[in-house]
Simulated assay, not measured.
Amino acid sequence: MSTGQWHPGPLHVDDDLVRRLVAGQFPQWAGLPVERFPSGGTVNAVYRLGDAMSVRLPLIEGGAEDVATEREWLPRLAPLLPTPIPEVLGAGEPAEGYPWPWSVHRWLAGENPEPEELSEPLLLAKDLAEFVAAMRSITFHGAPAAYRGGPVVSLDAATRAAIEELRGIPQEGVDCDVAAAAWEEALRAPDWDGPPVWLHGDLMPGNLLVEGGRLTSVVDFGCMGVGDPACDLFPAWNLLPADAREVFREALDVDDAAWIRGRGRTLSQALIALPYYRTTNRAMARNARHVIRAVLGEE
Rank of each mutant, 00 (worst) to 15 (best):
A283W: 07
G90V: 10
G142P: 03
L74K: 02
L59F: 10
T216A: 08
V152P: 00
P84D: 14
E70A: 10
V174T: 05
R76M: 09
V67F: 06
R188C: 12
G24Y: 04
A78M: 06
G262E: 02
L199E: 02
E130I: 00
D51W: 03
C231F: 02
R148S: 12
D202N: 10
P115D: 06
I138L: 12
C176P: 01
P38C: 10
P235E: 04
L271Q: 04
A285P: 04
L209E: 04
W192S: 08
W29R: 13
H141E: 14
A134G: 07
P84V: 14
D16S: 15
P205S: 08
A285H: 04
P10K: 07
M1I: 09
L267G: 07
A146P: 02
D16V: 14
D228Y: 06
P86E: 07
I138K: 00
S217Q: 08
F37G: 09
Y98T: 06
D255M: 05
P170K: 03
V46F: 01
R286S: 15
V219Y: 00
E164H: 11
L252D: 00
A283Y: 08
G168V: 02
Y47K: 03
L118F: 04
N112M: 11
R20N: 11
H290N: 12
T280Q: 13
G63E: 02
W198N: 00
A133P: 01
R148A: 12
V104R: 00
I260S: 06
H7V: 13
L240F: 05
Y277H: 14
I292Y: 02
N112S: 14
A180H: 05
A91R: 14
E172M: 08
D14P: 06
A294G: 04
L49C: 08
D127L: 01
T279P: 00
F234I: 10
R20D: 14
T69H: 09
V46M: 06
Q171A: 13
R263A: 12
R289C: 09
P113A: 10
L81F: 05
E130N: 08
D253H: 03
L17V: 11
A91T: 12
V178S: 12
G213C: 07
L199K: 01
R188H: 14
F221W: 12
L57P: 02
G50K: 02
Y98F: 15
D156N: 14
A52G: 11
L49G: 07
W198L: 15
L128P: 01
A285R: 01
E114T: 14
H7W: 15
A179N: 04
A180C: 07
A129Y: 00
S137R: 14
N112R: 13
E65S: 13
K126G: 12
I169D: 08
L124I: 09
R293N: 11
G92N: 04
G63H: 03
P82T: 10
R56C: 07
W6Q: 11
A145F: 09
Y147E: 14
W192G: 01
P82S: 09
D14M: 09
E96W: 05
L252S: 00
L203Q: 01
C231M: 10
R278Q: 13
D191K: 05
D175R: 05
N44E: 08
Q5V: 14
P84S: 13
V174E: 01
L80Q: 15
V18L: 05
V291M: 02
R261T: 08
G150M: 02
G41I: 10
I169R: 11
L59Y: 05
P8K: 05
L77Q: 03
E111L: 10
L233S: 03
